[in-house]
C-alpha cells in the first residue's frame, strides 16, 4: 500500500506517489531559485508546470492513474532543467544543469567489475579513474577497499532496477553503513599493524636476533598471537559485511514497501 499525494497542476488534479512528489517539488524549487532574478519567473514556472501536467497526463490511463518516480523522472528529463538565461555563458548554465535528481546506482555497463566505482563517480561528479585509484589504494589496507566494494556492490541497486525508485531516499543509509564499516575495518587493521611491527618485523631485523633472548622473547610469542588475532579480525570483518549488507537490504525493502 502506498500513500498518494494529490497535486494540482495547471488547474487539474494529479495523483503522485510520495517519491514522485518529492522529485517534482525538488525540481520546481530548483527552477524557482534559478529564476529568482528573472522578471518572468512566475510566468515561466506556470508554463513549465503546464508542460509537466501535459506530459504526465499522456502517461496515464484508466488502469494507471498514479504518477510514480519513474514517470516523473521521464517527464522531467523531457522538460529538461530550467535555464534561467538561455543565451548566457555555459558556466552559468551549468549551475542549474543538475535539476534532474541524481541517484546512487551501480552502472554495470560503464564499470569494470560491477559498476560500483562508475556509479559513485557519477553520483559525486568525479572521474571514475580517481574513484578506482581510491579503491585500489584502500585495498592496500588489508583489503579494506575490497570490503567496502563488496558492501556497496550488495547495497547499491542497478540503474535499471532502481528505475527511478527510492534510491535517493536510501543513499544516506548506504553511506552510513559504509562509514560504520570503515570504523570497524580501521579497528581491525590498526592493532594488526602495530602488533605486527613490534612483533614479527622488528624481531627479524634485529642484529643477531635470537627470539629466545631477553625482552624480545615474549614479543615473538605475542607476534604469533597478533597473527592469530589478525585472522580472527578478518573473520569478524566477514561477519560484519554479511550482517551489514543484510541489514541494508532489509532496510531498503522496508523503505520500499512502506
Amino acid at each position: 500500500m502506498r500513500q498518494v499525494i494529490i497535486v494540482s497542476l495547471n488547474n487539474n488534479a494529479y495523483h503522485f506517489d510520495e517519491d514522485a512528489y518529492s522529485d517534482l517539488r525538488r525540481y520546481l524549487r530548483r527552477a524557482q531559485s534559478g529564476l529568482k532574478n528573472n522578471p518572468d519567473m512566475s510566468e515561466i514556472l506556470a508554463d513549465i508546470e503546464h508542460s509537466i501536467a501535459e506530459k504526465c497526463a499522456a502517461g496515464l490511463n484508466a488502469a494507471k492513474n498514479v504518477i510514480n518516480r519513474q514517470d516523473i523522472t521521464r517527464v522531467l528529463h523531457e522538460v529538461g532543467p530550467v535555464v534561467a538565461d538561455p543565451l548566457a555563458d555555459e558556466d552559468e548554465e551549468a549551475a542549474t544543469e543538475t535539476a534532474v535528481p541524481r541517484r546512487l546506482c551501480r552502472q554495470p555497463d560503464g564499470g569494470m567489475l560491477y559498476g560500483v566505482c562508475s556509479g559513485l563517480a557519477e553520483y559525486f561528479g568525479m572521474n571514475v579513474v580517481v574513484v578506482r585509484i581510491i579503491f585500489l589504494a584502500l585495498l592496500m589496507f588489508n583489503g579494506l577497499g575490497g570490503v567496502i566494494y563488496v558492501l556497496l556492490r550488495i547495497a547499491m541497486p542497478t540503474a535499471e532496477a532502481a528505475g527511478g525508485e527510492t534510491a535517493q531516499r536510501t543513499h544516506p543509509l548506504v553511506l552510513a553503513m559504509a562509514a560504520v564499516l570503515v570504523v570497524f575495518a580501521a579497528m581491525a587493521i590498526l592493532p594488526m599493524l602495530s602488533s605486527g611491527i613490534d612483533g614479527d618485523i622488528l624481531v627479524s631485523t634485529l642484529p643477531g636476533s635470537a627470539p629466545s633472548r631477553g625482552f624480545w622473547a615474549g614479543r615473538t610469542w605475542m607476534g604469533s598471537v597478533a597473527a592469530l588475532a589478525g585472522v580472527f579480525y578478518l573473520v569478524i570483518l566477514g561477519v560484519v559485511i554479511a550482517v551489514g549488507a543484510a541489514l541494508v537490504k532489509f532496510l531498503l525493502s522496508r523503505a520500499r514497501t512502506r
Binding site: A31, N38, D47, V79, P86, A99
Partner: peptide, 16 residues
C-alpha cells in the same frame, strides 16, 4: 534540438 526548460524562459524574454 532543445527542451521546455530552455524554450520557455527564452520565449518569456522575447515577449518581454
Amino acid at each position: 534540438a532543445t527542451q521546455e526548460g530552455t524554450l520557455y524562459p527564452l520565449l518569456s524574454k522575447m515577449r518581454r
